[in-house]
Simulated scan of single mutants.
Amino acid sequence: MPTILALLGLILGAWSVRSICIKQQSNSNKFFKSLLAGFYFLATGGSAANDDNQFPAIIIMLIIGGVIQLYCNYRYIEPKESYIDAANGHKNSLGFFNDQVQDEAQQSYRSKNYAKASKSKGLNDVAFNYVNAEGVSRFREVDVKSFDGQYLEGYCHAARKFRTFRLDRIEGDIILRGTGQSMDPYEWATEIEA
C-alpha cells in the first residue's frame, strides 16, 4: 500500500506540473506553482512510505490536491488572442488613426507642390544647414520631392530617409548642388514657386 500511494503522489505531482506549465502565464509563475504542486504531492506520497498509521490522512490529502488541480483546470479560460496579437491590433488601430490625422493635417496646410514644376530649373537638388526642433544644426543634402511654400519634403542623404524641413529653420543659404549657386531660402522658395 505505501508503494501505491507513493506512485499516486508521483503521478498526481507530474500531472499537476504539466497542467501548470501548459497554461499561458509568466515563467516565474509557472516555476513557483510547479515547485509548490510537485512538493505537495511528492511529500504527501512519500510520507506514506514512512508511517503506516497515516494512510487515511494521506489518501485524503492526495484526493484534496487532485480535486483542487481539477478545479483549477476547469476554471482556466484560454485567452482568445495572444498578447502579441492584441498589441498588433492596438498598433494597427493607432496607425489608422495617425494616418487619418496626417491626411487631415496635410489637407489643412498643404496647397500646391511647386517642386514638380521646377525640375528643369535645377532647384530640386539642394544642400543647407538645418536647425532641428532641439536646436541642433546639421548639414543636409536633399533631393526635393515637394515644396508647398512652407515645408520642403525630400530624400535627405544624411539621414538616408525621406524627411520634411521647415523653410524658416534653414540656417544660412541654400546651395544648389548641380551648379554650386548659393541662394537665400526665401529667394529659393520664390524661384521654385515661379
Rank of each mutant, 00 (worst) to 15 (best):
E78K: 11
Q24H: 15
S16D: 04
Y74H: 14
Q25Y: 09
D99K: 15
E193T: 12
L62Y: 00
R138D: 10
D103Y: 13
Q69T: 05
L10P: 02
L7E: 04
A37D: 04
S93V: 05
S120W: 09
A117M: 12
Q106A: 14
E81Y: 14
V126N: 01
Y40I: 01
S26N: 12
Q181C: 04
I170T: 02
G154E: 00
A48L: 00
A133P: 01
Y76K: 06
L42S: 07
G66I: 00
K112C: 07
G135E: 09
Q102K: 14
A86L: 13
D148V: 07
K119E: 13
C72W: 07
K23T: 08
T179Y: 09
F165I: 04
C156S: 03
F147H: 03
W188I: 01
A86E: 13
A57M: 09
P2I: 02
R169Q: 13
G122K: 12
D51A: 08
W188Y: 06
D85F: 11
N98W: 12
I63D: 12
G45V: 01
I77T: 15
G45W: 02
L176M: 11
Q24F: 10
Q106D: 15
G46S: 06
I170E: 03
S120Q: 13
R138W: 06
I4D: 05
G172Y: 04
S19E: 11
A117N: 14
V136N: 15
S120P: 04
W15C: 09
L35H: 05
S16T: 06
Q24E: 15
N113C: 06
S47Q: 04
G46D: 01
E134P: 04
A43K: 04
L62E: 00
Y71W: 12
A105P: 01
N27D: 12
N50C: 09
K80E: 15
N98R: 14
C156V: 03
L12A: 06
G149E: 06
K112R: 11
T3R: 05
F41L: 03
K30E: 03
A48M: 02
I58L: 03
I60L: 15
Q150N: 13
C72A: 14
K30W: 01
V142D: 00
S120L: 10
F31A: 10
G95L: 10
K112N: 11
G178Q: 14
N124A: 09
N98E: 12
K119G: 08
S19R: 07
A86I: 13
R163K: 10
E187D: 13
G135L: 11
K112D: 07
K145C: 08
N88D: 10
F128A: 03
E191N: 10
T164D: 07
C21A: 12
S111T: 15
V17A: 11
S28E: 11
G46I: 02
T44W: 00
Y151T: 06
S82C: 03
I4F: 09
L35E: 04
R177M: 07
W188F: 05
L8F: 02
E104W: 09
F96Q: 13
V131F: 04
G95V: 05
R75M: 12
K80P: 03
K121A: 15
E153M: 08
L62M: 06
A37Q: 02
D143H: 10
V142G: 01
T190R: 15
Q107H: 07
K23A: 08
Y151I: 08
D99N: 15
Q107V: 02
L36E: 05
Y74T: 09
K121G: 07
R160M: 14
K121Q: 15
S26L: 10
H90V: 12
E171Q: 14
G38H: 03
D51C: 05
